[in-house]
């Protein structure tokens, strides 16, 4: 299982600023493939820094971040991009959708840079995920949708290519209570249903309550 792409192995991870200040330190962190893990901690503690480091988006990282056999800290930018393209889905706090496009076009955005043969399948998967998440209509651009619906569209975008890992950064921060609860439930069920590893940064206790395990980050150190 340790070689499964969804299994995380972190050792002596240090993330620095461009001026050399240590922003985050994670001496040891192991997450089994298929686990649902929450990350909590005070604002500015380094939760999102950890999440983005695990996605290969954070610069100035030392130590080891291994997803299965892939060592992200040793990979170049092209390899990291390929890893994200193939194995990772990311949900951002403020959706980051293309306002001019509709739900399906946003959900299936990866199809634009996938091989021609994979495009139709990816669109079908995005459409099915949107339906599962309760976004049944596909009319107009995404600005005409509610905040909850827009976050669901971003979840569909993260899942359309069937990744082994789903990372979410404060996915419920911009939603009301009901929408937040519904989204948290959907995130967990979408991950568990396909055996995906789910890592969620959140302040929201009801989200964290649904996780198998919760990690705390405090003052830039992963406990």
């Amino acid at each position: 299982m340790a070689d499964a792409i969804g299994a995380l192995f972190v050792r002596d991870l240090k993330v620095s600023s461009n001026r050399g200040r240590i922003l985050l330190s994670a001496p040891k962190l192991d997450i089994a493939a298929g686990a649902a893990v929450g990350i909590k901690g005070p604002s500015g503690a380094g939760k999102s820094t950890l999440l983005f480091a695990l996605a290969g988006l954070q610069q100035n990282c030392t130590g080891a971040i291994k997803w299965g056999s892939v060592d992200l800290t040793a990979a170049n930018q092209t390899a990291k991009a390929k890893f994200r393209r193939d194995h990772l889905g990311i949900v951002f706090q403020d959706f980051l959708l293309f306002d001019e496009l509709g739900p399906l076009e946003n959900g299936a955005i990866q199809s634009l840079f996938r091989p021609k043969t994979a495009r139709a399948g990816l669109r079908t998967a995005a459409s099915a995920t949107l339906k599962q998440l309760g976004v049944s209509r596909d009319t107009g651009d995404v600005t005409t949708y509610s905040g909850g619906e827009r976050q669901r569209i971003s979840v569909a975008r993260a899942l359309a290519h069937d990744p082994a890992i789903l990372l979410a950064d404060e996915p419920t921060a911009n939603l009301d209570r009901d929408a937040a609860d519904a989204l948290a439930t959907d995130l967990v069920s979408q991950a568990k249903g396909k055996g995906r590893t789910l890592i969620v940064v959140s302040h929201d206790q009801s989200v964290l309550d649904q996780m198998d395990r919760v990690i705390t980050v405090k003052d830039g150190v992963v406990a």
């Binding site: 988006l57 930018q77 991009a81 994200r84 393209r85 990772l88 990311i90 951002f92 955005i109 840079f113």
Partner: peptide, 9 residues
């Protein structure tokens, strides 16, 4: 965002 989700350069 495109770069974050792995779009090729």
């Amino acid at each position: 965002l495109l770069r974050a989700i792995g779009a090729p350069r």
